[in-house]
Design a binder for these strands. Structure first.
Length: 257
DNA sequence: ATGTCCGTAACCTACGGA
């Protein structure tokens, strides 16, 4: 079972790349962030043509998250507590409980959006702490936090910025402490494995990236993961997203509907 | 250090957000 997460930075703008990527990579489940479109614009029919069911939680111009699956899609949950923004969607796909998360950016340490980000992560932690411990779970998305300095191309340049502050990192560690494994770092302990590069400054070409997109899963599922990788090829070429997909291969045949 | 891209509203340009 192949599961991936990808912040596409507008599914409207990115559809050609997403369609190409699905065809080439054949994931069973894709967790999408920043669709930036209403449910009316979401390409349900085109995805169905490719063999995928979809659930979308859209908000128009901003945010928007989706789950795309070819191994079933049941028990859809839209939204995290009373969050007014479309940043969270869950579903059960082939027996695996999956969540697609678009964590608030924070903007600046003294911005109210930063407090919103910390509250949001605490809500996520609470939801995950209350889960059934026997239910396999995969939490993926754009967390907008680089957990350690290895996840940052130039830690000195990020002093005083969001994405690297200690409260944000502690909030992500608290999510992990509910019993989740950060698959990217677990499987690649010494590689930066960046997932995002600013469009500006030729950042991708220069290797100026951050690891802010994660796949997190329970320990039993992690033990069955044979491979985790960042698909940097998706960051190249025509009209790329500024994020690359993170992909995990689980040695597990999902129960098909 | 800050060179881009996105959607929107409203027009061939500016803006907020990331």
């Amino acid at each position: 079972m192949r599961v991936a997460t990808w912040n596409v930075n507008s599914l409207t703008a990115r559809w050609p790349r997403v369609e190409e990527w699905l065809t080439a990579n054949q994931p069973d489940v894709l967790l999408i962030q920043e669709t930036k479109q209403n449910d009316e614009k979401f390409p349900f029919a085109a995805l169905s043509q490719l063999g995928y069911e979809s659930a979308h939680f859209g908000q128009g111009q901003w945010n928007g998250v989706a789950i795309v699956s070819r191994v079933g899609l049941e028990d859809v949950l839209r939204g995290l507590d009373d969050d007014p923004e479309a940043r969270f969607i869950g579903a059960t796909c082939g027996g695996l409980r999956v969540y697609s998360c678009y964590v608030p950016n924070g903007r600046a340490l003294d911005n109210p959006h930063y407090e919103y980000k910390l509250r949001w992560l605490e809500s996520l932690r609470t939801l995950l702490a209350q889960r059934d411990p026997d239910q396999p779970v995969m939490v993926g998305g754009d967390f907008n936090v680089a957990l350690s300095d290895l996840d940052v191309y130039d830690p000195a340049a990020f002093e005083g910025a969001t994405h690297v502050s200690e409260p944000e990192r502690a909030a992500i560690r608290a999510v992990l402490a509910t019993g989740l494994v950060d698959l990217g770092r677990d499987r690649h302990p010494d590689e930066p494995s960046y997932t995002w590069w600013d469009y500006r400054n030729g950042s991708f070409r220069r290797g100026w990236g951050l690891r802010i997109d994660y796949l997190l899963c329970d320990a039993a599922t992690a033990a069955r993961v044979s491979e985790v990788f960042v698909d940097r090829a998706a960051r190249k070429g025509e009209k790329p997203s500024d994020h690359a997909p993170v992909v995990a291969e689980i040695e597990w045949s999902p129960a098909r509907p």
